[in-house]
Simulated scan of single mutants.
Amino acid sequence: MIETFRRLPRGPAEVAADGVRVLGLLSIVVALIGWSPLDVAVLALGLLGLVIPRFLGTRPALDIAFGITVLVATWSGLLNLYEAIAFWDILVHFALNGLFAAVLYILAMRCDVIPDPGDGRASFRTVFTLITAFGLASGAVWELSEWVGHTIVDETIFVGYNDTIGDIAAGALGSLLAGLAGHYLTAESRFIPARPPASASI
C-alpha cells in the first residue's frame, strides 16, 4: 500500500482527488486560527479519512466523492449546519455511510479478507451483501461513538433516539445503493501490489 500511496497522480481525475486532500490539510490550518482544539482534532480525523483511499488505490471517482463528503461532514459540524438545516444530518449520513462502506470493502479486499470482484471471484450478490453489511456496521459504530462523545467529551454533541434511528436508516439506505454500484466502486484503478520477496541467490 505504501507504493500505491507514493505513486504520482496520473490524469486530471487523480490530480483532483489529491486536490481534495490538500483542501483537508488547509482546513486544519484554517481551524487553528478560529476554532477550538476539539474542532481541529475533528478535522485531523477527517484528513486521516481522506488519505485512506490513496493508500488503497481506489478509483478516482470514489476517491473524490468520498473526500468531498468527508470534508462536508466535518465542516458541517464546525459551522453548525446540522442544527441550522433540517435533514442535513440525514443527507450526510446517507452519502458518507454508503461511500465509507465501499471503502471498507476495498480495504478488506486489499488485505485478502474478501474476494476481489475484478478477478471474477465475487458475484454481484456477494459484493452487494458485504458492502451493505459494512455500511450497517459502521453506521452503528458511528452512533455509538457519538454517544461516547456526548457522555465523555462534549455534552453539546446531540444524541437522541429519533436522531440515532434516523441516522442509521439513512446510512443503511446509502449502503444499499453503494452495494448496488459495488462492482463499479470497487473496481481496481491504481493499486500497486506488494512485491514478493526476492529469492536468495546461491
Results as ranks from 00 to 15, higher is better:
residue 160 G to V: 02
residue 123 S to Q: 01
residue 25 L to C: 14
residue 200 A to Q: 14
residue 118 G to W: 10
residue 128 F to Y: 15
residue 74 T to Q: 08
residue 177 L to V: 14
residue 109 M to K: 02
residue 144 L to Y: 08
residue 142 W to V: 12
residue 185 L to V: 03
residue 48 L to Y: 12
residue 93 H to R: 05
residue 119 D to Y: 04
residue 13 A to Q: 12
residue 158 F to E: 15
residue 171 G to I: 06
residue 184 Y to F: 15
residue 153 V to I: 11
residue 165 I to R: 10
residue 133 A to Q: 10
residue 56 L to G: 09
residue 75 W to I: 08
residue 31 A to H: 11
residue 88 W to F: 15
residue 187 A to Y: 01
residue 192 I to Y: 10
residue 124 F to P: 10
residue 39 D to R: 13
residue 81 L to C: 06
residue 111 C to I: 08
residue 61 A to Q: 12
residue 130 L to S: 00
residue 95 A to C: 10
residue 59 R to T: 09
residue 47 L to E: 07
residue 43 L to I: 10
residue 56 L to C: 09
residue 66 F to K: 09
residue 43 L to R: 02
residue 56 L to M: 11
residue 15 V to D: 07
residue 66 F to S: 11
residue 136 L to W: 07
residue 21 R to Q: 11
residue 36 S to G: 13
residue 114 I to S: 02
residue 46 G to E: 02
residue 132 T to C: 00
residue 103 V to P: 01
residue 30 V to L: 03
residue 34 G to N: 05
residue 185 L to C: 09
residue 95 A to K: 04
residue 119 D to R: 09
residue 191 F to V: 05
residue 39 D to L: 05
residue 197 P to N: 14
residue 68 I to N: 09
residue 196 P to W: 05
residue 4 T to I: 12
residue 133 A to T: 14
residue 114 I to G: 01
residue 5 F to V: 12
residue 127 V to M: 00
residue 92 V to L: 04
residue 200 A to K: 12
residue 72 V to I: 13
residue 113 V to K: 03
residue 35 W to F: 11
residue 128 F to K: 14
residue 74 T to M: 03
residue 199 S to G: 00
residue 49 G to V: 11
residue 57 G to V: 04
residue 79 L to I: 11
residue 74 T to D: 06
residue 108 A to L: 13
residue 62 L to F: 06
residue 108 A to G: 07
residue 111 C to H: 12
residue 110 R to E: 02
residue 68 I to L: 13
residue 176 L to W: 13
residue 22 V to Y: 11
residue 84 A to W: 03
residue 104 L to V: 13
residue 146 E to R: 11
residue 9 P to F: 08
residue 126 T to K: 00
residue 201 S to V: 11
residue 118 G to Y: 08
residue 47 L to Y: 10
residue 188 E to R: 13
residue 126 T to M: 01
residue 184 Y to A: 04
residue 97 N to W: 03
residue 132 T to P: 00
residue 54 R to L: 07
residue 28 I to W: 12
residue 88 W to A: 04
residue 11 G to A: 06
residue 122 A to T: 13
